[in-house]
């Protein structure tokens, strides 16, 4: 017999680890990835590869040469950031913009704060918003699903065919033409399946929901943020719609278009940048939902999910401080 091991209790541990959790998230994203391959063809695969590889590369380089700490690229977080970043861009994005976006996401969004676990913002969203502001034209040039498949290759889009293969997103139509403009576009079944223009990962609500349910089922995420986020955005959109159906789109439209579902299940629930307690998570979800609809309806951008989540990320430390979990044996503090 060798030496006995001495350690504090507990002596049994749940069979879990960061990579395991991360890979479960990756599994959950597979349906949406398949949909994007189907809709956008090889161009989508190209963007995925560039995004993931450059995220890995930058994480490795920064850890190796700048931080000079342990190298943790195997924990799966770079993979998730890469996929999410790719989900958030149109498939026609030039390759070098994708690389720059990955650098910002990993370098500025994550590593500058000390790496995984310390970043206040969701790295993929940091990268996405950076790209949206820096390259507004390329980032809002949305390829049409299916039609655009054959026009893409690893080289990117040919400018000559641009007008035939790209078109606006439903939210863009809403922004420009108002509710009347919408009736010309597709029906709800198409929207749910992903028959619309948009970022690669956001188009198919159904695929995203399947993955989201998997995450909930495997207890990777808790229900608080998704439910609060969906509920509040739906409620606010419904109020506006009831007030004036000719001016505002109906709430179902808001749910299935744009990046809402993607944001709800995969980005707002990011462990690091969302609140800890159940109460805090509900506040976070409600805040993000309200902000999303406000930006969509009253803001100058057609889509507000990324901004809403980033804003709530910024509020997370405050929420964590204010909304503690329910303590056992302490009466909830009441105003005397």
């Amino acid at each position: 017999m060798d030496k006995l091991v001495i350690s504090g209790s507990p002596h049994v541990h749940q069979n879990t680890s960061i990579p395991k959790l991360m890979y479960m998230v990756v599994i959950a994203m597979i349906p949406a990835m398949l949909v994007s391959f189907y809709m956008f063809g090889l161009g989508a695969l190209r963007v995925f590869l560039i995004a993931v590889l450059s995220c890995y590369l930058f994480e490795y380089l920064i850890q190796r040469y700048l931080i000079k700490g342990p190298i943790t690229i195997n924990d799966g977080s770079a993979l998730i950031t890469g996929i999410l970043l790719a989900f958030n861009v149109p498939s026609s994005i030039p390759w070098w913009m994708m690389v720059v976006g990955a650098l910002v996401a990993i370098g500025m969004g994550k590593m500058s704060f000390g790496g995984l676990g310390k970043n206040p913002f969701n790295p993929a969203l940091v990268g996405r918003v950076f790209m949206l502001i820096s390259f507004p034209v390329e980032m809002t040039r949305w390829p049409k699903p299916i039609v655009s498949r054959e026009y893409f290759s690893f080289a990117g889009v040919d400018d000559k065919v641009l007008d035939t293969v790209t078109g606006p997103t439903p939210l863009g139509v809403l922004q420009e033409k108002g509710v009347e403009g919408l009736s010309q576009t597709s029906n709800y079944a198409d929207l749910m399946l992903g028959q619309m223009g948009g970022s690669m990962g956001e188009i198919s609500a159904i695929a995203l929901v399947i993955g989201g349910l998997y995450l909930l089922f495997r207890r990777v995420i808790s229900w608080h943020i998704p439910v609060a986020y969906l509920g509040s955005s739906f409620a606010l959109a419904a109020i506006l719609w009831f007030a004036n159906p000719t001016q505002y789109a109906d709430p179902f439209f808001h749910l299935v278009t744009g990046g809402l579902i993607l944001g709800v299940f995969y980005m707002a629930t990011d462990y690091v940048s969302s609140p800890i307690s159940a109460k805090g998570q509900i506040i976070f979800g409600v805040g993000a939902g309200v902000l999303t609809i406000l930006i969509r309806v009253f803001g100058s951008y057609p889509e507000g999910v990324s901004f809403a989540i980033l804003l709530m990320n910024a509020a997370t430390p405050l929420i964590n401080n204010r909304f503690k979990p329910k303590r056992f044996g302490h009466k909830p503090a009441k105003a005397a």
Partner: peptide, 23 residues
């Protein structure tokens, strides 16, 4: 022996599990 300790990712699993409602 325990697994090597990694960085806290603030997943909140411990908060969920704590029977006393602590963090």
């Amino acid at each position: 022996t325990r697994v090597t300790q990694k960085t806290c990712i603030r997943c909140g699993k411990c908060v969920e599990a704590c029977p006393m409602g602590l963090e």
